[in-house]
């Protein structure tokens, strides 16, 4: 291929690079800077001279930030493993049936292509204390009505409802990806395993999961990062109040947006930036973890 087209290559890249310089690279850099500003007023572009770490200590000691960390991590560490295991089972089940595979796969994919807010509101109706479907369902097993998302709901109940919605919402993508990952596994391994008298469970445990492990790891990490950014699901289920009792279900992203929205208050924008940088660091740690684990464990 040609070698002397340096400037022409940059011309092709220019539209993307210029847009990204303005809306990706500069903001990334700027977020760090803002997080160290003193008494920043963003729209007026005024601030006290010098840099400070105070914003971070204020954020870290903020009650709502602690609540946000607790909520975010609880949500991520419970919903992600459950949805991964569940979607893996569903994908394997899909792969083992002789008929209707495409039909089931299409239905299972529906949550991915629907508006999260709209469906989240439907979940809110389902979780309604008095006339919700979920309490009705539980009553068939003799469970008394529970307030899941209302103003008297406990933290645990709200988290459970949020968890159910999050898992429901996130299954679609994982099922599709795992199902197509499964079809890429050489059928000979399954023939060999049958000849070796492996039971279905053994095949799942010792052939399918290990052979799929690079994909499982990749999906685990990306979903973990996705779950750490939870926000739309809280808006959908609880509205702008972020909880049955206001801010009960606040997440790191929600924290960032709350302080961003209050930009008129001196210094709040820097708190938002500090929160965003902390989130960035956490996701970076997970990405690093993926690199290390994938080097050590999953490759064969």
């Amino acid at each position: 291929m040609e070698t002397k087209n340096n400037w022409r290559a940059w011309l092709y890249l220019a539209p993307m690079l210029i847009l990204m310089a303005v809306f990706t690279f500069y903001p990334l850099f700027n977020a760090f800077i803002i997080s160290f500003y003193k008494d920043y007023q963003p729209l007026l572009n005024q601030r006290a001279p010098g840099m400070t770490l105070d914003n971070y200590s204020i954020v870290v000691n903020n009650y709502f930030f602690k609540q946000a960390l607790k909520n975010t991590f609880t949500l991520a560490f419970i919903s992600v493993p459950i949805s991964i295991v569940l979607s893996l089972f569903i994908a394997v089940a899909l792969n083992s049936i002789p008929r209707l595979k495409a039909f089931f796969q299409t239905i299972f994919f529906l949550p991915y292509v629907t508006n999260g807010i709209a469906v989240g509101m439907a979940f809110a109706v389902i979780f309604h204390r008095n006339y919700g479907l979920f309490n009705q369902f539980l009553s068939w097993f003799g469970v008394a009505p529970v307030d899941w998302i209302g103003s008297t709901a406990t933290w645990g109940k709200q988290m459970t409802a949020l968890m159910i919605f999050t898992i429901w919402d996130s299954l679609a993508f994982k099922i599709l990806v795992f199902a197509s990952g499964l079809t890429n596994i050489d059928k000979q391994y399954y023939d060999a395993a049958r000849i070796d008298s492996a039971s279905k469970w053994t095949i799942f445990k010792r052939i399918t999961v290990p052979l799929l492990s690079p994909l499982i790891l990749y999906i685990s990490i990306t979903s973990m990062i996705g779950a750490l950014k939870a926000y739309n699901s809280i808006i959908a289920l609880f509205g702008e109040s972020l909880g049955g009792r206001p801010r009960d279900m606040i997440t790191i992203v929600a924290f960032v947006y709350q302080y961003r929205a209050d930009y008129a208050n001196i210094g709040f924008y820097s708190y938002a930036a500090a929160g965003a940088i902390i989130l960035f660091m956490i996701t970076l740690a997970f990405t690093g973890l993926q690199t290390i684990v994938s080097r050590k464990r999953v490759h064969y």
Binding site: M1, P27, V253, I277
Partner: peptide
């Protein structure tokens, strides 16, 4: 096209996929 720095630019672009978009929104 082959050009100087293509690998570096490519890697940097791919790396941005890991960054939570919330960071950009502030600026």
């Amino acid at each position: 096209l082959r050009f100087k720095g293509s690998n570096l630019v490519f890697v940097i672009l791919i790396a941005t996929m890991m960054i939570p978009g919330e960071i950009f929104i502030l600026t």
